[in-house]
Design a binder for these strands. Structure first.
Ligand code: MN
Ligand code: MN
Ligand code: ZN
Ligand code: ZN
Lengths: 141, 141
DNA sequence: TCCTACGATAGACAGAGTCTAAGTCAAGAA
DNA sequence: TTCTTGACTTAGACTCTGTCTATCGTAGGA
């Protein structure tokens, strides 16, 4: 995602300090297993650019999602999380107790598990799989 | 439905008009592909029992979920849906445009697709699969 | 019938996200 | 370089979903 800003400029984005900071927060360090909420993104962005507003963070995140640069993940009934790891398809493993999230890469094609007879005429294009359980910390004796 | 009320009574539930109406709304007609939001449940319940409160609907739904009689489904970032089809395991197929939901029963065991090396020490106990696409109505034209 | 603990109610409150009106500024034009 | 303008940002009001609390009511047992 390091050339993210390049791609965005190529898409006609006006490059503002706010957008740059949001992109940097999401891409920070290249750690691909980051799943921040909008408010967490806002907090980190505000550390670099104190006057940035919540609305701008939401707007920018929404644009990044539309552009396919970021994936929206709703694991629980709480705040959505924003996932910069949009270029390698993956699923999520979530701790039922503490909410920790890990990227996982299951084998097989989950779409293939849904026979035509179970598709009811839908044009199925996407599958989202969430594995739930206890993380080592929460399960630990 | 009468089964449900029986089971609830057996569990020590005090049988009030409000709880009865909520249970009837969820179980209404035995159509198992009902996925109502809390507010939809409230609206239908209020048609039979006008003074029923939102809080009671939320409380009752929460109790039914705890008892395993109803499943909470969060397909989008919007309101949770309450699924009375709790006794036959299934997954969901959701229309990306209109939000229509269908129950589906994929083959294979989705848990088996997650190799041990991808479990990161988690005790994985549950998988939730959401298929997305366009329903016949939304795809046509 | 009476008692009372459990349940229902209204409405305040909270979290997450959207929207609007007004001000600001990135970037192309001259 | 300066000008211009429409895209962008902002504060804060607003919506939607859900939770909580204080008070009132009643199901069901004695
Ligand atoms: Mn991820
Ligand atoms: Mn269902
Ligand atoms: Zn945990
Ligand atoms: Zn549809």
């Amino acid at each position: 995602m390091s050339d993210l800003l390049e791609r965005l400029r190529g898409r006609g984005w006006r490059l503002t300090a706010q957008r740059r900071v949001v992109a940097e927060v999401l891409d920070g360090g290249g750690a691909s297993h980051v799943h921040l909420t909008a408010d967490e993104v806002h907090a980190r962005a505000a550390a670099r650019l104190p006057e940035i507003s919540r609305a701008t963070v939401y707007n920018t995140l929404g644009e990044l999602v539309s552009l396919g640069e970021v994936i929206e993940v709703a694991t629980d009934g709480r705040a959505k999380r924003y996932d910069p790891n949009a270029h390698r398809p993956h699923q999520h493993l979530v701790c039922s107790r503490c909410g920790a999230i890990r990227d996982v890469h299951p084998g097989g094609d989950p779409l293939a598990d849904l026979p035509a007879a179970e598709r009811f005429g839908f044009t199925v294009s996407e599958v989202e799989v969430t594995y739930r359980g206890l993380c080592p910390n929460c399960a630990g004796a």
